[in-house]
Design a protein around this nucleic acid. Structure first.
Lengths: 195, 195, 195, 195
DNA sequence: GATGAATGAGTGTTCATTCAT
DNA sequence: TATGAATGAACACTCATTCAT
């Protein structure tokens, strides 16, 4: 195993997530990331072209992972579209639970990054969104979901609603249990979707 | 005195909205705001303590206006809770249609500002949110909306969904008509809310 | 009498002395001087060309007054050179007692002003210094003071010593009584001067 | 590393002394110091927290050096108090001769710095002053100096006198020889001090 | 004269990025 | 690869001074 030969590139990424979450991307200092990652400032630039690239890589890793997990769910034949939709929502909630700092970065910085350089943003994001759409379309086709909605619109609606809720939760986690939020979201959304 | 030939304080605010929308708050340059406002750099500081204060004032003005309009809707006795809910959604859509730049600023910078200085953020925002909640509660009391949801959670969900949709639209307005988005939101949300 | 028709030019000077004493010339704000003087910022410039001119005028007024008083002492025939020397020292001490703020400005800013614009500095200063020298020379001529010193050098020595002592006292007036300082100065200096 | 090709920290200090002497602390520009030191503007802040810190460091270095030299004199047993007093005066004169720019900074800025941040001012200054006092006290104890003076007061008087004389000389060195000044000071002061 | 809003040149300081070692 | 001292462009903010009223 190559344990303490340590993956510096990844150490930097993990440190960056923490620092971006704490201070926001624009107020984050490179030297603080380096410090937290246990490397010299200059070493950051051995692994990443610049500050923005670090942020891009964070999102690439995030959406690649989420996409792969959603793909696994989507491929399953033992569950129906409704259950797959539940799975999608659980996916996002689980991500937040496992890595709150990453979630904060996602909520706060994704807009900025997409607007700044749409081409540079990871294609996994779009693939994830598309796959989510597929699941809903599948539900409509199977007569489980209502056809009276525009799937692309509702998909964004649900995505934005989730994101905002998770953000609220991240700021004051004591106010609501994530489980309560999760159940309300599922209940409300499915009432909107189900036939 | 050389003041009042056209409310410079407001000129600055309007210019700031444009510049913040274009470049984002953090990349916006004070001198560019001044230029666009037709004012000297130093004059910005006659009207606003610093850059952040300008952003705060933008949100104060925005939420004060929205709150007052929602209050007017809420007070009406000639329409029921469902129609009031429609009114709430129309309010936000209208704001976006009238001032897309303001909407972009709202979507991109509100999180940052609230996190940076929660106390300094306009109380009109919370009042607006609370009033929206009242309308839904009223609907539940009048047996129009389902009581099986947590109003505070769903209120955030809807708010976040709306915000994200409007943001998407602002970035590529040609892809969807705002009216189509508006109708889908109303339809989907009311399916979730109605008894 | 023209009392509350008020001498604004002098009000400004008095305010400036206070503000310069408190914050130092370089950190003093014109608008604070105006506020303290009870006039508008712009009015300062009706009476004085700029900030430096105010400082120059303060020193002009100070040295004109001191010179006239020393001249009166110098002219007297009823006292000898030694008593005149005592009078010179008393003059400076009295100034400090009557107007500590003015004294602080004198100690802190005179060097700066002379170096910045030697030509612009009030000629009363030089006249005062010369007159002090005369008194000592008179003492030497009358065989009261020793001729073994260079009067110009010792005059500066005494002047600097006095200034430093007064400065020390102004910073912590509780540590020494001005009278104790005065007597020590007279005693020590006269030991140095007397034949 | 790119450090140590000639002690940049000290280069900056030397440049700062020159620029402070020429323009005064408040009018000195950081970029000019950098230029003179042959260093980039930003490098100043690698070595010093800010402009004021540079000034503090100048005084620290100055008084540490003077204190150590005076301590060496004070420790000697082969010379009496009178000779030590001469040594003290020579010390200050020598400093001025070797580094007139440093002397100008000392005369012009020490008051400001002490008043602005008394705690931040180098303790070597007080130690120097105290040691000077010791020498005079020793002279009194050994019956060489008169006990009829307050040592603390006269110590300030002498210090201030010296400072002023050196300042005068630095502004127009041609008018008097430093040696003439030095001898007059010694003569006059010792007349005042000796029994 | 008196006002105080408006001005804009000026500057200390930050920090992402570079590069000699 | 790894370092961290060095860089210098960039910018928010200040404030003495002006001038239309």
């Amino acid at each position: 195993m190559r344990l303490k030969e340590g993956n510096k590139g990844n150490d930097i990424l993990l440190a960056a997530i923490k620092v971006f979450a704490e201070s926001g991307y624009h107020n984050a200092k490179i030297h603080k990331i380096a410090e937290l990652a246990g490397v010299a400032t200059g070493s950051i630039y051995v692994y990443y072209k610049n500050k923005e690239t670090i942020l891009q890589r964070i999102f690439e890793q995030l959406w690649e992972r989420l996409y792969n997990e959603l793909a696994a769910i989507s491929r399953r034949t033992d569950i129906n579209a409704i259950e797959k939709f539940d799975g999608l929502i659980d996916l996002l909630f689980d991500m937040f639970i496992k890595d709150p700092a990453l979630a904060v970065v996602f909520v706060n910085e994704q807009n900025y990054l997409i607007q700044k350089d749409p081409k540079g943003f990871t294609p996994y994001y779009q693939k994830f969104i598309d796959l989510g759409e597929c699941i809903v379309v599948e539900g409509i086709d199977k007569n489980a979901f209502t056809p009276d909605i525009d799937v692309k619109i509702i998909r964004s609606y649900i995505f934005g609603g989730l994101r905002h809720l998770l953000h609220q939760w991240a700021q004051s986690p004591e106010e609501y249990s994530l489980d309560s939020i999760r159940e309300n979201v599922k209940y409300f959304s499915k009432r909107g979707l189900l036939k």
